[in-house]
Simulated scan of single mutants.
Amino acid sequence: MIAVTGATGKLGRLVIDTLLETVNPNEIVALVRDPLRAEDLGAKGVNVRQADYNKPETLHSALVGVQRLLLISSSEVGQRKAQHRAVIDAAKSSGVQLLAYTSILHADTSTLELAVEHRDTELALVESGLNYVMLRNGWYSENYTASVSPAVEHGAILGCAQEGRISSAAREDYADAAAVVLTSEGQAGKVYELAGDENYSLSELAAEVAKQSGKTVAYNDLPREQYKIALIGMGLPEGLAELLADSDSAAAKGDLFDESRQLSQLLGRPTIPIAQSVSTALKH
C-alpha cells in the first residue's frame, strides 16, 4: 500500500488524485489528523486513517501494511523537526520499505530559514536506515499567484527579491512528481532538485500580470525590513511576514533558482508555465 501524510492538505489531495489514476483506491492510505475531513476520499474507496504528527501513538498503527510512504512536510514551522522524526520512527518500526520526503530546493546549501528543519529531517532520514527519496521541492507558483488579485487592485507587487531568478512550478507539478516516485521502481537513495522549467524575476511576474489583466501592475522592490512591515500592515502575522521576507531575500541570492529540469524529466512533460498559473489565478 501507498500512504500519504497530510492527505487533506492542498498538496496531499493532489497527490492522491494523481495516484487514483493508476492505483486501486484500496491500495492507497490517506493519513489525516481529522478523518472527518477526508470523508470524500473514503467515499472513493481510499483507506482513511488518523495520523497526528503530534501524537506519535497514532502513527505506528496508521502505517500497518504500508510499503511506500510520502511524508509531506508539516506546515507547523518550528515544530517540524520533532514531528517528522516521529513519522520516520513509526515508518521504521512499521516496516515501511520506502519513504519519500518533500524537502526544499537545494536543502543542503539553501540560506532560507525554512531550510533548517528540512536539513534536520533529511539527516534523520539518512540516519534512520530507511530507504528514502528526497523530493526537494522548489517554490510553488501559487505562493505568488495567490496575491495576483490584490496586485491588480493596487497596481503593485511588493517584495524584496531584487532581480533574483525564481524557478517556481505549480503545486500540481510537484504532486504529479511525488506520485511518479511512489509508483516507480529504483527510487531508493535518489535526491531530486525539483523546480520549474522557466525562471523569472518578480518584475517580470508583475509585467505578466499587467499583460494578462490589462491593468498597470509594477514591481515595488523594498528593503527587507520595510517589506516585512508592509506585510504586517496588510494583516499578516509577524512570523509569516518574516518567512516571506526571508524567502524573498533568499531569492535575491539565487536560492529559488534551478535550471536542471529534473522536475520535467521526472514528469515526462514540461512544467506548468508561470503565465498559465497567473491566468488561472486571474479567473478565480
Rank of each mutant, 00 (worst) to 15 (best):
A207C: 03
I272T: 08
I166L: 15
V181W: 10
E185K: 04
D221Q: 09
I232P: 02
E204Y: 06
E242H: 13
L205V: 12
G189L: 05
E204N: 03
A170S: 15
N220R: 14
I229M: 11
S247E: 09
L182F: 07
V217G: 01
S203P: 10
L243W: 03
L240V: 09
K211V: 08
A207T: 08
L231R: 01
Y219P: 01
A195D: 10
L263R: 06
A177S: 05
A207I: 11
F257P: 02
A175H: 05
A170Y: 04
I274W: 02
S203T: 10
D255N: 14
D246K: 08
I272H: 00
P270E: 05
L231A: 04
E185F: 15
Y192I: 11
A275T: 14
D176H: 15
K215P: 12
G268C: 06
V217D: 02
D246T: 04
G235P: 14
D258Q: 10
G155E: 08
E163A: 08
Q262A: 08
A207F: 03
Y174M: 07
L256S: 01
A195Y: 06
K253A: 07
A210V: 14
S213Q: 11
G189M: 01
K190G: 02
Y219D: 00
V191R: 04
A175S: 08
G254S: 14
A175Q: 02
L202A: 10
D197E: 11
R269L: 12
D255C: 09
L240N: 09
I272G: 00
Y174F: 15
L158S: 01
E185P: 00
R165Y: 10
A210I: 04
A251G: 13
D258V: 11
A206G: 05
P237M: 04
A218C: 12
G254Y: 02
C160H: 07
S203L: 10
S264M: 03
G196N: 05
Y200D: 00
G233C: 13
A161Y: 02
A178Q: 06
E238S: 11
V209Y: 00
K253C: 05
E208Y: 07
E193W: 00
L158V: 13
E185R: 05
G196P: 01
D173L: 05
V180A: 06
A175V: 08
L243R: 07
E193A: 15
Q212K: 15
T216I: 14
Q212G: 06
K211A: 15
V191T: 12
C160A: 14
V181L: 12
V191W: 03
M234P: 01
F257R: 11
Y192L: 06
G254N: 12
V181K: 02
K228L: 06
V180L: 02
P237S: 07
A170H: 06
G214H: 12
A245P: 00
V191G: 03
